[in-house]
Nucleic acid binder design. Structure first.
Length: 370
DNA sequence: AAAGCGGGGCT
DNA sequence: AGCCCAGCTTT
């Protein structure tokens, strides 16, 4: 293991002066800290704040969350993305109530065994909620430590990652303020030691940073190898009747489970999209439709998939709804929770279409650029 | 338009 | 170690 310089005093003093006032920093309630940590997975602090406040008001403790219906939890999460987190958090609350008397367990391995909680999140909860001397190594911490050490290998995987984990563990062990230490390291990574534009002039650890001394800050960590992205084309049916749209609720055990979306098919080369869409809507939502012009074209990127969705106006000419079918206004659908692609389409319909949302069959130039 | 960031779970 | 989940920011 590399031996890092002792920068604990400088970093903690900086944290005491500069830490952001965040709602979950005003509490020591382990449940509240657990909720905040799940929300902060893959989500920026600024985005999480409002959701956190609403979520805590609605589900103030593990028992309240555990007894809530899944749809309520999902709707509180609507707009935050990565909805599997909501399901896992719900399951974790139920485990906490059923197996741990309603209180977040105080043992690292037991915390980590809860659904949706991996090594990083368990470390964050153990250190922040229970002041335990354990590390919480997220992407920020990996970047900060690899720069301070001027580590030239890949710190995210293999031996490099193990070295970083060892360093983080030794720093956490030899620490009198574990709760603040965990947050200070991540705060530095988020506020100062940014990936692209680090504010080294303002950094409290500047004098002890090996990458700074050797001018290597921007070369550490090295760029990651990524899979080449892949284009995918989808077509969605925007079926409007009165003031409502036809939505499908996604099935359990699928991507975006439980969320609502415009009926969507993946386009295959050589297959007629209109009839493909018609068949899908008949089989899934129970309605016969006529497919008309494109009313929105949106892009949605997730990991290496670049999805382009062609939203087609359509009208229902008969049929009976299935259990998954719901006629909802745009507001109602957003409240229940819609997929990201459907939200983007709704945004176009509500702004691009302005006062009069697209009516099925309206004359709209198919080649319009959006 | 493309590249970049990034945890948890699973195999 | 590599893939899947199904998103936003930066360049």
């Amino acid at each position: 293991m590399k031996t890092p310089p002792d920068f604990r005093d400088e970093l903690l003093a900086w944290y005491d002066r500069e830490k952001r006032a965040l709602p979950w920093r005003g509490t020591r309630d382990p449940y509240a800290i657990l909720v905040s940590e799940i929300m902060l997975q893959q989500t920026r602090v600024d985005t999480a704040i409002d959701y956190y406040k609403k979520f805590m008001a609605r589900f103030p403790d593990a028992r309240a969350l555990a007894r809530a219906p899944a749809d309520d939890v999902l709707s509180a999460w609507a707009g935050l993305g990565y909805y599997r987190r909501a399901r896992m958090l719900h399951a974790a609350a139920r485990e906490i109530v059923n197996n741990h008397g309603g209180a977040v367990p105080r043992d690292f391995d037991t915390i980590k065994s809860l659904p949706g909680i991996g090594v990083y999140t368990a470390g964050a909860i153990a250190s922040i909620a229970f002041d335990m001397n354990v590390p919480a190594v997220d992407g920020n911490v990996i970047r900060v430590l690899s720069r301070i050490l001027a580590f030239r290998g890949d710190p995210f995987v293999g031996p490099g990652r193990k070295m970083i984990d060892d360093v983080a563990a030794s720093l956490a062990r030899a620490n009198e303020r574990p709760r603040d230490w965990t947050q200070a390291l991540m705060e530095l990574g988020a506020v100062i030691c940014a990936p692209q534009n680090p504010l080294c002039l303002l950094c409290p650890v500047r004098a002890k940073c090996a990458a700074q001394k050797s001018g290597l800050v921007l070369k550490i960590p090295p760029p990651k190898k990524r899979r080449a992205s892949q284009k995918v084309r989808h077509a969605a049916a925007v079926v409007r009747r009165n003031r409502k749209y036809l939505f499908l609720k996604r099935e359990i055990e699928s991507i975006n489970a439980g969320l609502y979306e415009f009926p969507t098919v993946e386009c295959t080369n050589g297959v007629d999209v209109d009839s493909q869409l018609g068949t899908f809507v008949r089989e899934s939502a129970g309605f016969e439709i006529e497919v008309h012009a494109t009313v929105a074209r949106i892009r949605h990127t997730i990991t290496f998939h670049r999805i382009e969705v062609d939203a087609r106006a359509a009208n229902a000419v008969g049929g009976h709804p299935t259990a998954r079918t719901a006629w909802l206004s745009s507001v109602e659908a957003r409240e229940r929770g819609v997929t990201a692609a459907t939200r983007k389409i709704l945004d176009v319909l509500n702004t691009g279409g302005a006062e009069a949302p697209p009516v099925a069959g309206a004359k709209i130039n198919k080649k319009q650029k959006i």
